[in-house]
Design a protein around this nucleic acid. Structure first.
Length: 285
DNA sequence: CGCAGGCCCTGGTAGC
DNA sequence: TGCTACCAGGGCCTGC
């Protein structure tokens, strides 16, 4: 569920609360949370303890905390990951995975993750950009994202447009929710073949992707339940603004046709049957 | 190489 | 009531 707007909301919260603070202790409560850190949980904890957080950065759905050692704590929230600032004496969350205590004895940083798809790792020398995520494309809010290169790369693909939007090596930060929302705004069905889209059509779609990501970030992200929250445990409000996602059977906000839901990659796609006609030859869901 | 699909997880809920 | 089945889904990995 956390896509770019949700991760950016968390990044901003962390930037406010942890930059400039020295980490005094690291406690890994569940080894799966640091499974991407090959040297293991003990190494993870030892390499971070004593270091100061100097920044909080993001690319797509990945976050990282550059440390004064030149390394970085790299994190992904997966589906249910949370980064929470909590008083040190607050009771442990049920799904607390990693706890960071600070030398100033102020609020702790806690990584909480119910479904454990998320995780943390120490990226050696990764303060600027962790090598582990070098394959992740820039996201569309990155000032160095190239629109023309994206349009060209997308049109070279031999796949469907929604699959391309979800491909983090082509454009990062977009997940199932915002892909559906951007496609609705662009009046494109997700099964449209990428190589049949014109440059202007892809350019318009990219504009809608950017618009919906920006609007959702302004609202603090989207949340349907208590799983996604910012660092203070608060939910965003963008779910009120969704046009198609999760709105099966409800009227399209443009034309009032009932929103349809179709199976897609073991999950669901939502679209308007009138504004977003299924392309010729595409199998019915 | 590009692309498609399986798998990892667990809490909530629908259905019987 | 209590059980089971299913669903949510991002990214890594494998196989074609």
């Amino acid at each position: 569920m956390p896509e770019l707007p949700e991760v950016e909301t968390v990044r901003r919260g962390l930037a406010t609360w942890v930059v400039g603070r020295r980490i005094a202790s690291v406690e890994v409560r569940h080894p799966r949370a640091v499974r991407r850190h090959v040297p293991g949980p003990e190494h993870f904890a030892a390499a971070i303890a004593g270091r100061t957080v100097v920044d909080v950065r993001r690319r797509g759905k990945y976050l990282w905390l550059p440390l004064d050692s030149g390394d970085a704590v790299l994190g992904h929230l997966g589906m249910s990951g949370q980064m929470l600032l909590q008083p040190a004496d607050a009771p442990d969350e049920k799904h607390l995975r990693v706890r960071f205590g600070f030398a100033d004895e102020g609020p702790e940083l806690r990584f909480v993750d119910q479904r454990t798809f998320g995780g943390l790792a120490l990226s050696e020398g990764g303060a600027d950009l962790p090598a582990e995520i070098a394959h992740i494309a820039r996201d569309p809010m990155d000032p160095d994202f190239s629109d023309t290169a994206f349009v060209a790369a997308l049109r070279r693909r031999r796949t469907e447009i929604k699959r391309a939007l979800l491909d983090q090596s082509l454009i990062s930060g977009v997940g199932n929710i915002y892909a559906d929302e951007a496609l609705w705004r662009a009046r494109l069905h997700g099964l449209r073949p990428t190589d049949a889209l014109t440059r202007p059509a892809v350019g318009r779609l990219l504009g809608h992707v950017r618009d919906v990501l920006a609007a959702a970030t302004d609202e603090g992200g989207t949340s349907f339940d208590a799983l996604y929250v910012n660092v203070n445990g608060e939910s965003g409000y963008f779910d009120r603004s969704l046009a198609v996602y999760g709105r099966e059977g409800l009227p399209c906000r443009r034309c009032a046709a009932p929103i349809r839901r179709e199976p897609f990659m073991n999950r669901s796609s939502f679209s308007c049957p009138r504004c977003q006609p299924r392309p010729r030859g595409a199998a019915r869901g």
